[in-house]
Structures are given as structure tokens and as C-alpha cells.
Write a protein that binds this DNA or RNA. Structure first.
Lengths: 253, 253
DNA sequence: TAGTGGTCTAGACCACCAC
DNA sequence: TGGTGGTCTAGACCACTAC
């Protein structure tokens, strides 16, 4: 028994299950089709429901499945490409963007945000809430933090906190000369409020895109946008998105 | 029982646990410190180990914890900012990049890659394997796909598949005029080979960065890089990364 | 060898949705 | 009201690490 490797590691059951299911999805199911329920699938594969769920969770994480309580598990469509940041920089609220203003409040931001904005930790800033739609589905929820210094004309105003006020704040922002942007992407889990906006459960995996807008030699605004990680592929650069990295994940031999 | 909302939804235990643990991490633990083991933590909070693990998994997903089998659970350092794509485009293998060449093979890529490269689905391409280090830790594993048309001088060569050959392929690539790049980021789970390279278990969450390099009016190379989602924050634009979105996740009140 | 996290089981109950 | 996925339990065994 010294040839190559025979029976090296016992592959975890859920991993093997995931592979089997993945191949079945490619060959036997159409997008939108509903799978047998978890109890039946578990019985069919001869595993406990928890083990089956481990495999389903991974497939959902990879955007292959969509699960909804009370409804069932369906085959997910390919991820939608969502453009994040073109080459030419623009302020949020440009007439052609697909964000919808929800409301606007004046509040003290988290410490990390205050640090990035270079404001005092107890200083209130405008917080504009926006959501982004794509193909009729909500794909992102955003909190746009704007120091009062970036919208001086609105410092004394206490208009009703709504879309109208949000529009006013963004209009003020556009008066400044945008000097540049800065972006970061990381993995996070949806807060309760964002989850609701995104039609997901709290804790769902999201891609957090943090954008700093520079004007007047400082950070004039900070956007924290959370994108649904299961349905979105973030694209950078001018050429929209292309069909890449979906379907069979088999590696070249 | 008709006023506002009283005891609306029973918050899941693991969600509450996560909050409690998160606050404890902020106030009572230092980076690198080791937590009590799972059985003890579960007992201390009066929950089953599986429930406790659900909370730990989320915290690990958010980059707050690091768990290693046989060792224990430690408090993770803040995510490292990793620059992905500067404003001025460059070919892979520039003298100042922090990628390390591992090897190079000639093989048939997955169908999705072949489609992006506009090669036939059974056409072999050069596949350069690279890894990226940051702060002494591996942060990314990459497969760089280069059609033979982009490195014509190497079509007949069958040098030993190693770093030397990888270097030769990249040198050939540099002879072409790079016209532009195109990037996409999405969530994925690590394949077995990538996981090994990244010192993680298979299935670990990763950020998949797909980059297309354009030259001669077509896609001259395609990079699929998988970054550790737990330890990395991908930054775009010229200004490195800044300390944002870490620490207490409390929302402004 | 002792202790850690990783996997797995066989149940139970709950929240949600459609009928 | 019945069926779905979501949560939770109390165990068991395994793989890995460090001593």
C-alpha cells in the first residue's frame, strides 16, 4: 500500500452532497423550478436534514439556489451584474442612476464613519437612505453619510424627514466639485433594517461597498452600501458585465 | 394589547448571542486572544453547542473571529485592505506586484472561461497559478488563463510546468499593448485546491475577482482570483485602504 | 494523548406562506 | 390548515494540533 493515495480523506458528506446537487441543478432543473422539500431530499440521500441543509446553504451562498420560508427551494437565475463605479466619477443622485431615495435623517454616525469623515464622534451628519433596484428586485440598501459641512445651506432646516429632504441634501452636494472617489468591498452580514429592505433574513450574506467621495480636499461624503451577495455580481469599469463564472464549476483537468 | 408593538418577534437565540459576543469582543478581548472553547461557551450561555456555533460562524464571516481546528477560536485582527486594480491598467506580473508564481500548465479551461476568452470550448490555454501574500499571510489564489493566441511564441514549447514557464508566458503577454481591463466581484466558496493555498477549509467564503484584460481588440487574458473573505477588504482606486466599517456595528440612534 | 473545532444524527417546535 | 424552511436540542464521533 505505498502507491499513490487511496482513500486519503473521507470527504464530508455535505460536500459530496453539494457536488451531486450542483450537477443535478445543471442537468435536470430549469431556472425557477422548485426542488423537493428538505425532508424529502434528506430522506432521498439518506442523510439527516441538518446535513442536507449544510449543502443547500453553500449552494445558496454561491447563488445557485434561493430558499424562502413557507414557499420552498427554487433554482436561482444567474447573478445579475451590477455596475459599481464607472471610470468617470459622479456624485450620488445623478439623474440616470437607479437608486431610489427613501428618507433622510440627521444623526450621529457610528464611530468608524465619523473617523472616515473626519468629524467629531458626537457630531451629527445627514444620513440619506437609498435603495437600488435591478430587474425589478431590490439589490442594495445604502446609507449615505454627509457631514453638515458638505451641505451648509441645510444646517438649520428641519423639514419632514423624507425623500424630499433627501433630494435637497443631494442637490447641495452637487454644488461641490467632486475631486475623486475611493472604494472598498468586503463581506458582511445584513443588519435587520437592511435585510428588510433587501427582502432577506437578518444575517444574510452581503457585499458591503464603502465609497468615499472627495471634495474640497477632504472626505465630503461616505456611502456604505450593502448588496445582496446571493444575487449580485459587482462590476467595475465601463464595460457592463459578462457571463462569467457561473454554471459547472468543474476545474480543467 | 393594541398600543404599539410589544414582544413582536422572538429574536433568534443565535442572533442575540452574536450581539452579546460581539460586544464582549469589543470591550473585553484583545486581538489574538483565545476564547473559551465552544463547549464551555455554550454551557456558559445556556444553549446547545450548535446554536453557539451558529453565532460564531456569523462572527467569523464578518471577520471578527478566526477558528482553527485543534487550536481554538481567536479574536481576528481588522481586515487588511488589499488593492485590486489601480487607475492605470497594467499586465499581471509587473515588477512591483506582490504575486508569486506557482506553476503553469496547458489545459482546457471551464466552459465559462472559454466563452469569456472567445476560444473554442475544447481549446487548450495556458493556465498560470499565482498566490498573493499580504502581511505574511496568503490572501488570494489565482488562475490566470491565457489563450495560446496571446503568447504565440510558446505554442510549441513543453518546458517543465513550473514557475520558470509561468514567467515566460507572462513575458510574452507583456509584448501586447494592453487596451483596458474589466472587473467583477462576487461571493463564492473556496474549491479544495484554492482552500489549501489559502490555508482554509474547502467551502470557506471567498471573494471571487474576475478580471478581463483586453488587447488587440479582444480578451487577451482572464484572471479568476479568489480572496479570503474573512481577512480581506478589497480596495479600488489609488488611495490605499482606510479604517472603515469595523469595530462596533451599532447603528446611529 | 488530551483538547480543539468540524461533522453528523434524530428528533422537536416555530414562523411564515398559500390555499 | 397543511406544508415550507428556520431554529434549537443533546447527544455522538471524527480530524487535527500541540504537547
Amino acid at each position: 500500500m505505498g502507491t499513490t493515495q487511496l482513500e486519503t480523506v473521507p470527504e464530508p458528506k455535505y460536500w459530496h452532497l453539494k457536488t451531486v446537487l450542483s450537477e443535478a441543478l445543471d442537468s435536470e432543473f430549469a431556472v425557477g423550478e422548485i426542488l423537493p422539500n428538505e425532508r424529502e431530499l434528506a430522506a432521498r440521500f439518506g442523510v439527516a436534514r441538518a446535513t442536507l441543509r449544510q449543502a443547500l446553504e453553500q449552494l445558496e451562498l454561491e447563488g445557485r439556489l434561493q430558499r424562502r420560508r413557507g414557499v420552498g427551494t427554487t433554482v436561482a437565475p444567474p447573478r445579475v451584474g451590477v455596475a459599481v463605479g464607472t471610470e468617470q466619477h459622479t456624485w450620488p443622485g445623478a439623474p440616470d442612476d437607479d437608486w431610489q431615495l427613501v428618507d433622510c435623517t440627521l444623526a450621529v454616525p457610528p464611530a468608524a464613519v465619523a473617523d472616515a469623515l473626519e468629524t467629531a464622534r458626537d457630531e451629527m451628519v445627514h444620513i440619506v437612505r437609498r435603495t437600488r433596484m435591478s430587474h425589478g428586485q431590490p439589490v442594495a440598501a445604502e446609507l449615505l453619510h454627509i457631514p453638515q459641512a458638505s451641505a451648509p445651506a441645510l444646517s438649520g432646516i428641519d423639514a419632514p424627514s423624507g425623500p424630499a429632504r433627501a433630494r435637497a441634501v443631494l442637490r447641495e452636494l452637487e454644488r461641490l466639485h467632486l475631486e475623486g472617489e475611493d472604494r472598498a468591498v468586503e463581506l458582511g452580514s445584513a443588519r435587520a433594517d437592511d435585510a428588510k429592505e433587501l427582502d432577506r433574513l437578518p444575517g444574510a450574506p452581503v457585499l458591503v461597498v464603502t465609497t468615499r467621495f472627495f471634495a474640497q480636499g477632504r472626505t465630503a461624503a461616505l456611502s456604505v452600501a450593502t448588496y445582496r451577495a446571493d444575487t449580485c455580481r459587482l462590476t467595475f469599469g465601463d464595460t457592463g458585465g459578462v457571463e462569467i463564472h457561473h454554471g459547472p464549476e468543474r476545474r480543467a483537468s
